[in-house]
């Protein structure tokens, strides 16, 4: 009776602790992914970036204090086929020689209710900077925090696809971006 009582209160304490202030900071890159889908002649073509680094500081108890930065190694793109991969690193697309990385820096996070949030920030690709709003969900999976979200990026805002490729009837302007980030709590977070 007594033992059970103690065990229960210990569990309750632990749970309360978990729900309180845990900041998710250690991004597990191997389990995170950054994918996108373009539309070519109405055909959805999936792709992804194999290399990116991201810093996250997210405490579900204080979502508005959260921040994140993301840096994408654009040459690590997989655009669906070898031909496409050779093409999109070129001058008319990402021009990775001159602009090897894309960067996102958050300026704030809004709580939308439930487990839904919205990250606001600035995206810089190919020398162009634009405001981005990226809705995402957060859930806890064991000790880890899992972020899932996405947004639509208009490629012409960043001159991705110049010259003949500016023809959005062949490759649509809207590129769907999807991210999945797994992060562990900050080691020995003492606040």
């Amino acid at each position: 009776m007594k033992i059970r009582h103690i065990a229960l209160s210990a569990a309750a304490l632990l749970l309360a602790g978990a729900a309180q202030s845990v900041e998710f900071k250690q991004v597990d890159t191997a389990r995170s992914s950054l994918a996108f889908s373009s539309k070519q002649m109405g055909v959805p073509v999936p792709g992804s970036f194999k290399k990116f680094t991201t810093q996250i500081a997210f405490d579900p108890a204080k979502p508005t204090a959260a921040s994140t930065t993301l840096e994408i190694d654009l040459a690590s793109i997989d655009a669906g086929s070898k031909d496409a991969n050779d093409e999109v690193v070129g001058k008319q697309w990402f021009n990775v020689k001159a602009f090897p990385t894309a960067r996102f820096v958050s300026s704030g996070v809004k709580a939308l209710g439930g487990n839904r949030y919205e990250a606001l920030g600035k995206m810089t690709i190919k020398g162009q900077t634009r405001d981005i709003v990226a809705p995402f969900t957060f859930k806890q999976d064991g000790a880890n925090g899992v972020f899932d979200g996405g947004f639509v990026l208009k490629r012409m805002d960043f001159n991705i696809g110049e010259g003949p490729w500016a023809d959005v009837s062949a490759v649509a302007n809207e590129i769907e971006i999807k991210f999945h980030v797994v992060a562990a709590p900050a080691a020995a977070a003492k606040k």
Binding site: M41, G42, A84, E87, W165, D167, S169, A170, V171
Partner: peptide, 10 residues
């Protein structure tokens, strides 16, 4: 590879 090629393929 060009937009034209994508169109003709389609």
């Amino acid at each position: 590879l060009s937009p034209n090629k994508l169109k003709l393929y389609s």
